[in-house]
């Protein structure tokens, strides 16, 4: 156990029991979250980003989801072997979660106030009045206008951006040490996204929290993260500090991702570089390099599992003869 990391995920394996047998959604994922920093996890849908997050919280769908290997240490504590009672304290108390779809994260039949106050009542054992006041203050902190009035609203009264602020209020209520935000702005307009990311950044530095930000948007990563973890087909293919990753990407998948997004500077109507094919289904993953599998490369490289190594200080890479450029 090294000092200086709030969260350490080490060779995490998460599988799902299905009709087709045990399918491995997360295959030996390792990364570390330093105190007070933001770590972005980026990848295409189905690459295991969200499953990784849910594994940390031990919120996998039951009974199908199973953590079959690896370790998760949070403030030195082994989360995989903590009791369910302890996990209830951790969730919402020490680790807050922000989900993508604020409408499904909020209960439609309860007032906003009751839902935010509930966090204080459960985790801080506050009385009704005290919890209500704390909740109002929380909404105010998230720059929700007229917080006392909003407390009496139902989720459907609020706009998407306001709802997402309420969800963030829920996550931040107990001033957790870690926030896991799973695509927090994907459902929002760019203008509202900018507001929310700005707010999240400010609150983070005010409270000294660490943030794990899961997104598919490399722009969001570049603007908010200190470190980036790139996932492909259940594995981490590369991780590095943000400047390093954008300037000196070493894995073919990272490079392809970075090239395939149109920016405001690309020549209009020019041919965008694409990644051929699609991600293989969970059951069809090769044991070897999975990006080689996507590119249709066969041979010895695809049979042996590539090693995940630190190639430069802080820059980790899955070493494959075809995909990594060393």
């Amino acid at each position: 156990m090294s000092e200086g990391y709030l969260l350490e995920v080490d060779r995490l394996i998460t599988s799902f029991e299905t009709e087709r047998g045990l399918l491995r959604a997360v295959d030996q994922v390792s990364f570390k979250v330093p105190y007070g920093k933001t770590v972005g996890i980026v990848g295409e849908s189905g690459c295991g980003k969200s499953v990784t997050a849910m594994s940390i919280m031990r919120l996998l769908p039951q009974p199908a989801g199973k953590i079959l290997g690896g370790e998760i240490h949070f403030k030195g504590e082994d989360l995989l072997h903590s009791s369910d009672k302890r996990m209830q304290q951790v969730r919402g108390g020490e680790i807050g979660v922000i989900f993508q779809e604020p409408m499904s994260a909020l209960n439609p039949v309860h007032r906003i106030g009751r839902q935010v106050a509930e966090v204080f009542r459960i985790h801080k054992k506050m009385g009704k009045k005290e919890a209500w006041d704390a909740a109002t203050e929380m909404l105010d902190m998230l720059r929700i206008p007229a917080p006392a009035k909003r407390m009496m609203d139902y989720p459907h009264h609020l706009s998407g951006g306001m709802r997402q602020r309420v969800v963030i209020a829920l996550a931040l209520a107990c001033r957790p040490d870690l926030i896991i935000a799973d695509e927090p702005t994907t459902a929002l307009d760019v203008t509202v996204q900018a507001q929310i990311l700005d707010l999240l950044g400010n609150l983070q530095s005010e409270m000294g929290m660490s943030l794990v930000l899961i997104t598919h948007d490399l722009g969001v990563i570049a603007e908010t993260c200190d470190e980036v973890v790139v996932m492909y087909a259940g594995r981490v293919v590369e991780s590095a500090p943000v400047d390093e990753l954008f300037e000196n990407p070493l894995h073919a998948y990272t490079k392809a991702l970075l090239r395939s997004i149109p920016t405001l500077d690309t020549v209009p109507k020019s041919v965008l570089p694409t990644i051929p094919g699609t991600v293989a289904g969970l059951g069809d993953h090769s044991h070897g390099c999975r990006f080689c599998q996507r590119m249709g490369r066969d041979g010895p490289v695809t049979r042996e599992r590539p090693k995940f190594k630190e190639v430069e200080p802080g820059h980790w890479l899955e070493i494959c003869k075809e995909c990594s450029n060393l």
């Binding site: 760019v190 507001q195 603007e223 954008f246």
Partner: peptide, 19 residues
């Protein structure tokens, strides 16, 4: 408000209030 995929390009944002 468009996020730019370049960590070096820290720009001044015009943040809009409200919806």
């Amino acid at each position: 408000a468009v996020p730019v995929a370049d960590p070096k390009a820290k720009r001044e944002k015009v943040l809009l209030e409200g919806d």
